[in-house]
Amino acid sequence: MRGWKPAPHVLLLLPAFVVLAAVVVVPLLLSLYSSFTPFRLTRPETIYTFIGFRNYLRLFADQEFWVAFGRTVLLLTIALNLEMVLGLFLALLVEKATRGQRLLRTIMMFPMMFSPILVGFQFKFMFNDNIGLVNNALQSLGLTDRAIPWLIDSHLAFTSILIAEIWSSTSVFAIFILAGLMAMPKEPLEAAKVDGCTPLQSFRYVTWPFIMPFAYIAMTIRSLDIARAYDIVKIMTDGGPAKRTEILWTLISRTAYSDARMGLANAMAYVAIFLSILFTILFFRQLAKARQQIGAEW
């Protein structure tokens, strides 16, 4: 290697590149490659068999996969919308508080501090048809006289998961929107009042356009979250019963480890990532547009 003298900046950046390559690029390439093999954990030598796009072709014809895919998108859509509305509401309430706002903000963050596993267990307990709080409460109030099979009926189980998701993450929206509200200049609001706006009109024409970019940031984050959702569902229903609440990542982990079909699972994962990328692009577009609209300087 005599005579090869890298420029100092290359030399200085080299360690970072090496580390990045080792922990990110190599595993990524490896998993991408394995999605083109029939790799099974039980038969390690299968990783050397290259089968081209066969895993992907198989996937596209696999109804189970598309049902899980569709359910994930449905969960994402409903959860995002409800979280958005609730988070907005919460943020507006907290912003109005003249006293104890810091305390309220801290309390608001509590659900985010719980591990999703714990949230899953909590809600699994609450929605338990025999000993759960929800049924107990409904029955003591005389609203129903039989046990509702929350985690067993497919619609109810989906709803239960939705509630757990929303409970744990509405504060993401609330916090971003609250940040937006607090950063918002107050004068345009006063100008709107003088210009004849009712409080509702002020919100619609002045406040909302201003906090929209903040809502889009929260949406991007949360769409990635839900597209990767796993823990809560795993704990509450494990995709069951009879795959009635199977979502993408519970299906992927089952395929990879229970069925030991790592190659196929990796192919699924790449399709799932594609979904995430799609949502990210979508929301970033909206964000850019909204930012430009309010002439944001950030």
Binding site: P185, E187, P188, E190, A191, A192, K193, V194, D195, G196, C197, T198, Y205, V206, P209, F210, Q293, I294, G295
Partner: peptide, 20 residues
């Protein structure tokens, strides 16, 4: 009465234009 019922206009020191 709220401002909207007073039929007034106001020019603010910081202009308070609607940025969007």
């Amino acid at each position: 009465l709220p401002p909207r019922q007073r039929n007034i206009s106001m020019v603010f020191q910081s202009y308070a234009l609607y940025p969007h």
